[in-house]
Design a binder for these strands. Sequence first.
DNA 1: TGTACATCAGTGAACGCGCGTTCACTGATGTAC
DNA 2: TGTACATCAGTGAACGCGCGTTCACTGATGTAC
Lengths: 185, 185
Amino acid sequence: MARRSREDTARTRQQVLDAAAALFRARGVHGVSITEVMAAAGLTHGGFYKHFSSKEELCAAAIEHASRGTAAELRKRMTAPGAAAFAKAYLSKLHRASPDKGCVVAALAGDAVHAAPEPRAAFGDAVRELAALIQDQLGPARPAVRRRALANLATAVGAMILSRAVADGALSDELLEAAAAQMSE
Amino acid sequence: MARRSREDTARTRQQVLDAAAALFRARGVHGVSITEVMAAAGLTHGGFYKHFSSKEELCAAAIEHASRGTAAELRKRMTAPGAAAFAKAYLSKLHRASPDKGCVVAALAGDAVHAAPEPRAAFGDAVRELAALIQDQLGPARPAVRRRALANLATAVGAMILSRAVADGALSDELLEAAAAQMSE
DNA sequence: TGTACATCAGTGAACGCGCGTTCACTGATGTAC
DNA sequence: TGTACATCAGTGAACGCGCGTTCACTGATGTAC
């Protein structure tokens, strides 16, 4: 193929990011090859390095990209204020079933621990963004609210990760419900 | 090398399991090769298949092995009854710093989501065992206690995973403290 | 506005590497008599 | 209890495969005049 216009190049980059953000969340970073990401974006693998210098750099960019999407989606789903509305929006069975479109923190926490500094830093930013979002949802920026927001973040993310990891559907449901109940108290 | 006695064979298997349980928890299942596991057990890689039929089978066995260790260690560290004692034992900085000796559920939740049925089932059993342990710690086997145990499990595991994944030490500490405070309420 | 040339996004073959797995071999252990 | 033989835990070389990455090439886009 031949050289593309600037608009095409920018559009391609976004398509690669969209594909990577979805595939990485669905199957984990190491579970998806660059060839698969490029194919999902409608391209062949060779052109990848015209957009990113390495898989790690893509990973970091994809986490950042997904984080913006996660936050926007969550804000849209939380119509009322308070912890119960967050719990309902976050701990749904729909969210559990669609990691590719869901919270990047829950989907990639396991990968982030062992990731290179760049994607790790991007993951840290995503955690901070989600914490801030929950804090806004719970109330004014006071220390007690901050603490409750972080605890609810841990509960929500932990429940989502475990409910996805466990094969037994009944236990999986129980985990979501117990976490939602505690957060809504 | 030559054939070994039954006692030697059994001892070797345990050493491989010990090594795998520690290495998998420290660096993730896909971050550790069979050669590394065998070397950590003092052997070469070729003999691996005399003990396990595949890496997946080792993974399942290592999760089961680690789960027993996790439960025993945790019971030992919880001297008093109640949620606060669990929070203190589980959400410590020592635990955060030593995933190789720590809770297998927190260490391998990210891997379990994408794992084969066999290790996934072993992970589910580990979750059930940890949930039962927390429930015992909280009180008699009533539905409300069960629910609280599952919520505390999600909070503790989520906080530990996130505190390890986040590079920023201050945020990492804050997560552990916020989760411990909420669980001790 | 038109022309000549440099740029570079995308292609597809190729590379090097590490991994899980297999295999022929060794020789002490376990077993049958 | 002793002997002959089969078993099999462990070794280390080798395999096949998929992955991340590189590279020569193409030809439309962007730029300089």
